[in-house]
Design a protein around this nucleic acid. Structure first.
Lengths: 125, 125
DNA sequence: CTTGCCTCTGACGCCGACGTCAGGTTTTAG
DNA sequence: CTAAAACCTGACGTCGGCGTCAGAGGCAAG
């Protein structure tokens, strides 16, 4: 524990990050390839991640589940990891939020439709 | 209008179905290829659809939006267009309903996450 | 008859988030 | 020291719902 804030001991390799976040190693490499996640490198070339990488990966998963592409996520990342955002970025955030809400509405409509079918099949056995 | 229920005049060709349902002609052909939709054929080989085909296509779109594959939809179709369903089919319906609900929950979580980011970026301009 | 739109059957292309295999280096456990 | 496990860089494969192009018929109007 150095006073300089050197946190070398806390760096993780890719496997640990992947396991902790519940994704494959391949997925983590893919995120880096898409510019979502950066890692330091050990002298031998292995990726070294700081602890917050796990939260990042989970965040990516959540956004993927929301239907965002990695490209779109890279555009929104400045809103996430920096304090200052411009009006355009905030607008994009809201656009995505609306898109997401629309998808939720669609899914709920589909669910209700399924419920109708279920109700019919249950009353007509 | 014959008493025999002959509704030949009401048959539509593929373009009309596609336009009415808001999808492409290609999509309607694809549904047939996947076993989702059947059509009669004119002597020259053109597809002829009955009016309810439009509702079917809309239903497919809704299920696609819900994340179901065409394969899965074909398995569930007997629940839809026939009166009698077996226990297995009703179980599948419920499985899909639960899957769908889970996806909705995921999306709502993602939306809330986005809202957090939006709140942060709005208070840190 | 011809013009112009509609339809037909293949069959290849696309996108996005990885899976997977190949062939090689590095780290770790015993 | 050695063997297993983990890591590396390409690069090709996958899946699903179509888009799109090619080449060939069909159908009502003027």
């Amino acid at each position: 524990m150095s006073v300089t804030g050197d946190a070398t001991e806390r760096l993780m390799r890719i496997g640990e990050v992947a396991r902790a976040a519940g994704v494959s190693v391949r997925a983590v490499r893919y995120y880096e390839q898409q510019g979502l996640l950066t890692a330091e490198r050990s002298p031998s070339g292995q990726r070294l991640y700081r602890p917050d990488a796990i939260a990042m990966v989970r965040f990516f998963q959540q956004m993927f589940a929301a239907g965002l592409t990695s490209r779109r996520i890279t555009e929104l990342l400045p809103c996430w990891d920096s304090g200052h955002t411009d009006a355009g970025q905030r607008a994009m955030l809201r656009v995505e939020r609306e898109r997401l809400q629309a998808r939720i509405d669609d899914l709920e409509a589909a669910r209700d439709r399924l419920d109708q079918v279920i109700a019919i099949t249950d009353t007509h056995p």
